[in-house]
Design a protein around this nucleic acid. Structure first.
Lengths: 349, 349
DNA sequence: ACGGTTTCTGAAAGCGCTTTCAGATAGCCA
DNA sequence: TGGCTATCTGAAAGCGCTTTCAGAAACCGT
């Protein structure tokens, strides 16, 4: 066999390890590690040598080995009901923002509004090894809490408030109630709700409850035929409103679980010859990008997803690093008034 | 100190390891590993014992140790230009679908249409130890290719075609040209383009080029004042169309980089008293959820993001597992005709 | 009952990094 | 220059799993 210099002999399959850097720099792997992790107490010349050797070799520390050794994965998991939903995408993106700054990676997973699936996905993340976990909502599989507790990693819930678990969110019932009160103040008395799936979804459920209670507080009730649960999306909104009309006298105002649903309902209303807001006031949830551009612009409950994400990210990082945190961070939703709401026509209320 | 049974003495901080399971089941860690990884050749009674012990202890294998030992991280990275963009979210979601089935995890990162940022993010993923990498487009930092090569992991590009690198996508120039030809067939002769950022974005660039060439092939040209580059989003679309009108005679048709841009352009057109498609035909890109629900429903180039994601996921898994793959998978985009396009008014062309 | 297989199993050697610990060096003052 | 700190440094011991290898156990036919 020919005697070639190391650089060339090196089979391309094997990437350089700390040992190689150490050899090349004429130091031990301990020193390599010290240099590469910025710990003080390495003489300048050796530090220099290590740096150069690492550079030359294109050395990249093996993440698994590091994780095994430090018992830190430098990763945080997040399980959201629907990874394609605008609000959740935004929260993921903002959590990641914060994590990235702290050197952490976000691993996102999809639970599809199903507690069992959520348990499966979260378990998967836990097995992979994450240093923290973000969940959505306050209702989860009991086993999930047990597993999280056993794993000993911090967890934070988002988008709703909780008295049991650390959380960053808002009071879904209260904010929906606020919308209902606003409609009642305008003079509406027949108010309907079109929500997405409520099963395994405390936010959706709380919103409807909040609305029902707000109505009750003023001597009104949420008629069953005006309380519709459909699948998310524009199509869902159309179907939902159609269904509502089929059920009896039309409401003069509706509150929808998302802006997409509201959009669908508005389309259906128009198709039925109802004008918005003349015949029907519509309120959405989320303040999606398109909400101000609908015709008419949509009144909606703005959920500050980005802020929630930032706060959740900060919370997890802090706990991972052993810093103190507040258990509950409230980032209130906000009713954004636009043109899709107005007083009911005289005599219609 | 009291003599309590192991179960209780166990400090909650330390989670059980294979050794604990082995001890409890009365076998060695080798056997534990064999059982938990489903490898054959373990007698039924021992297998049973291990299973129960693992169950009782709530044992979860340490991912880092496993990764270190098997040299498989069981994770794939994906860097997309904008994690909040519908098309990319969909692709991520469908890649993840496939990965999940194969037991892999997706780690997504955001490049923000910037080659340097993309390099940074991808490097970060590489350092973490992903087993494969998905990128968007065929234009990347040269160092990135070098690092991927050195790391020896498979990479696949998406959303465009490439002769150099494995890819799953479509011919952006050709599909945009198809849209232009369709408009010309309708009789349009003044056709404009509103695209998102083109720098560091081969897809956007290719689309405009494709349109310009299609026009040229019929003796027309893309006037500079009809070639607008703006930021993505509905607002961008409005601004873009406004800018286009300021530049000179209005086009009779426009092709937009996304449906959001098209939506914005339509809003602006209406605000200017132009009717769609009467005075202006509009074509978008992506076939977003809302496209069929706009007024009028939007003609658009449907990009099969989910299929692209599935194919990309399959491609990576196959290569990770050493199975053969095709270098180039074409998943053609499709022109979806709706009501936002029509022949130009007589004499306007 | 016995040698020859075939199956199972455990000891032990990694995987590549971090970190402790003790020894080596350098620095300093008298 | 010698002795005593204050710094640096490397050897080695993990981290928790997988996997090889060789020995033990079980099985078989005669």
């Amino acid at each position: 066999m020919l005697d070639l210099p190391d650089d060339i002999l090196e089979p391309p399959g094997r990437s350089p390890v700390a040992r190689d850097v150490a050899r090349r720099a004429g130091v031990s792997t301990a020193t390599v590690s010290r240099v590469l992790n910025g710990s003080a107490g390495v003489r300048a010349d050796k530090r220099e040598a290590v740096m150069r050797a690492a550079q030359d070799l294109g050395f990249v520390a093996n993440g698994a080995a590091r994780a095994l050794s430090t018992r830190r994965f430098m990763a945080v998991g997040a399980v959201v009901p629907n990874i394609e939903n605008e609000a959740f995408v935004r929260v993921l993106s903002s959590v990641q923002d914060r994590l990235r700054q702290a050197g952490y990676t976000l691993i996102a997973a999809n639970a599809g509004y199903d507690l069992e699936d959520e348990l499966r996905e979260a378990t998967f993340l836990l097995e992979r090894g994450v240093d923290g976990l973000m969940l959505v909502g306050d209702i989860h599989h009991p086993d999930l809490y047990a597993r999280i507790a056993r794993s000993g990693i911090p967890m934070v819930q988002t988008f709703s408030l909780s008295r049991e678990h650390p959380c960053v969110g808002f009071d879904n019932a209260a904010s929906a109630a606020r919308a209902a009160n606003y409609l009642m103040d305008l003079g509406h008395r027949r108010i309907g709700v079109i929500s997405g799936q409520r099963k395994d979804n405390d936010r959706g459920g709380a919103r409807v409850t909040g609305i029902a209670q707000a109505l009750a507080a003023r001597g009104l009730r949420l008629a069953p035929e005006h309380d519709i649960e459909i699948s998310y999306g524009i199509g869902g909104g159309r179907d939902g409103f159609r269904q509502m009309l089929a059920g009896g006298p039309a409401p003069t105002a509706i509150i929808c679980g998302t802006d997409q649903i509201a959009f669908g309902a508005m389309i259906e209303a128009r198709a039925r010859g109802l004008s918005v807001p003349g015949d029907l006031s519509v309120i959405g949830h989320n303040d999606s990008d398109f909400a101000p551009f609908l015709d008419p612009p949509l009144t909606t409950i703005r959920i500050h997803s980005a802020e929630i994400g930032h706060a959740a990210g900060d919370h997890l990082i802090a706990r991972i690093q052993g810093r103190p945190v507040v258990r509950l961070t409230e980032i209130d939703a906000e009713l954004i008034l636009r043109a899709s709401t107005a007083p009911p026509r005289r005599g219609a209320g």
